[in-house]
């Protein structure tokens, strides 16, 4: 049924990810990936007086940090592609004014990391840019007050809810230098299967992953076993179970090589219910743990599929459904 090829691009020049950087909040630092992060903040205000300013500063230090780690200077960077979860991606825009290079704002909710890497690799592959910085992040306290309730409200979180990650991840893509290569890109379609529960984003996003995954496998003639790791963004515990069921219905088995950043992010006793979420979730895991394993060649070929629930507070209040998107990138060591 699904056989068109146009959504998948097989890159000829295969841009390399020559540097990656991650910065997280204190709670995230105590999670399962704690020791892989480049910087763990002592408190998530980050020395600023509002959480929004803290998010901005987080993005700035992620960008500065990754340029340093890639042993480049700001003069070498041709373009920055970034996004975040706040209205009008305001944090990224503020972070971008610090730097001399042009800025391309993207919004893919929690899939922003893959979207920016995908766009950057295509631009580099086309020969238009040499070095591109990709960056995204999210902050628990800013997301909570924009999408849900005030922090001090004494309500209980439903069992399907997820914890927005406080953190930012960034990477530099280039044709020169050493690092894992981006070899394939599949841009996802927006999928909406009629889920309207904002506390159950995993269920809303799983069909989007299914769609992108099926298209990717069809276009590249690969199967799940061809990858050392198939990593989704923030489906969470429930969402990834749903995805496994959905893929099973299509005759594709996701086995031991399948993982979800959100589900793996926190330790059990950290009480985050279905796991982590937010743009910072897959961004920080990818730019720390995954990149390290790729550099050490423990993973040779991975399929990275962050998902985004493209909802707004207005659509939620009007009881509308949640459209979702999922972009896939293939990275080879």
């Amino acid at each position: 049924m699904i056989k068109e090829k146009e959504q998948t691009i097989i890159l000829k020049k295969q841009p390399r990810i020559i540097g990656s950087y991650s910065i997280v909040g204190p709670k995230e630092g105590k999670g399962n990936f704690g020791r892989y992060f480049d910087y763990v903040m002592k408190d998530d205000c980050f020395g600023e007086d509002t959480f929004e300013k803290a998010e901005r500063k987080m993005l700035e230090s992620a960008i500065t940090g990754v340029i340093e780690k890639a042993k480049l200077s700001t003069k070498d960077i041709n373009l920055m592609i970034a996004g975040d979860l706040l209205n009008q991606i305001i944090s990224s825009s503020y972070a971008a004014r610090m730097y001399p290079f042009p800025f391309l704002g993207v919004y893919g909710a929690c899939s922003t990391m893959a979207e920016s890497i995908a766009v950057a690799s295509v631009l580099i592959d086309g020969g238009y840019f040499d070095n591109i910085v990709c960056c995204t992040g999210s902050h628990f306290s800013t997301a909570e007050r924009q999408y849900r309730f005030p922090l001090e409200l004494g309500n209980q979180r439903p069992p399907t809810s997820q914890w927005t990650i406080t953190g930012a991840g960034s990477c530099v893509l280039s044709l020169k230098g050493e690092g894992p290569r981006v070899t394939m890109v599949t841009f996802g379609k927006v999928i909406d299967w009629g889920v309207s529960d904002v506390n159950n984003m995993g269920a809303a996003m799983a069909p989007a992953v299914r769609d992108t995954l099926l298209r990717h496998f069809a276009a590249t003639k690969t199967k799940p076993d061809d990858y050392d790791l198939i990593l989704t963004g923030d489906l969470g515990k429930l969402g990834s179970e749903i995805l496994i069921d959905l893929m099973d219905d299509e005759g594709v088995t996701l086995g031991a090589n399948y993982g979800d950043c959100g589900q793996m992010y926190f330790k059990r006793q950290q009480k985050t219910l279905c796991g982590g979420s937010g743009a910072g979730c897959c961004a920080t895991v990818f730019n720390s743990y995954i990149m390290q394993k790729l550099r050490e060649k423990q993973y040779k070929k991975i399929l990275f599929l962050p998902t985004g629930a493209l909802l707004s507070t207005t659509s939620t209040q009007q009881g509308d459904t949640i459209p979702s998107v999922c972009h896939a990138i293939v990275i080879e060591a």
Binding site: P150, L151, E152, L153, G154, N155, Q156
Partner: peptide, 26 residues
């Protein structure tokens, strides 16, 4: 108060204290 609320749910929402919390928190 939100710590109490996380633990008690309806127990701290239904009393008048919950009303007070819902005004002060935002």
């Amino acid at each position: 108060y939100d710590q109490i609320g996380k633990f008690a749910g309806g127990g701290s929402i239904v009393p008048i204290t919950g009303f007070s919390n819902s005004i002060t928190s935002p």
